[in-house]
Amino acid sequence: MAEFDKPSSTEEEYFAREDIEKKRKLALQQSEEMATKQREDLKQLHYMKCPKCGMDLQTLSKGKVEIDTCFNCQGVWLDAGELEQIIKQGPEGSGKVMGAVLNLFKRK
């Protein structure tokens, strides 16, 4: 009867593989959660900061386009697709927008 109490080696291997797979999935989930948290932390640390000097960016609306500007280093930053919007406004529209942007940084 002692023969039946002892699990076979294939059973032990099966449960060992199952245990390893559970631990692997748990580690993967923890890694993903950590990566998500790190991305959020980085976003919060760098959001609306000038990539050149690190100062706060200010959003200025010029027509349909919102331009992020840095008054410290006079940097002008456009989000994806905003340059195309300026170009689509035509020479008159882009001239007005760019003229307004350039006026912001004229030294007195």
Rank of each mutant, 00 (worst) to 15 (best):
M1E: 09
A2S: 13
A2H: 11
E3K: 10
E3T: 09
F4P: 05
F4Y: 11
F4D: 10
D5I: 12
D5T: 12
K6D: 08
K6E: 11
P7V: 11
T10M: 15
E11C: 07
E11P: 03
E12S: 11
A16T: 15
R17G: 07
R17K: 14
I20Q: 11
E21H: 14
K23C: 13
A27F: 15
A27S: 13
Q30L: 14
E32F: 07
E33A: 09
M34Q: 10
A35C: 06
K37N: 02
R39V: 06
E40L: 05
L42D: 05
L45P: 01
H46T: 11
K49Y: 06
C50H: 04
P51N: 03
K52D: 06
M55S: 14
L57K: 01
L57M: 03
Q58C: 07
L60Y: 02
K64M: 09
K64D: 13
C73G: 07
Q74R: 14
G75S: 15
G75Y: 09
L78R: 08
A80M: 13
G81Y: 00
E82Y: 06
E82M: 06
Q85G: 04
I87K: 04
K88G: 00
G90P: 04
G90D: 01
P91V: 13
G93K: 01
S94K: 03
S94G: 02
K96D: 02
K96C: 03
V97Y: 00
M98L: 08
L104T: 05
F105L: 03
K106L: 00
K108Q: 02
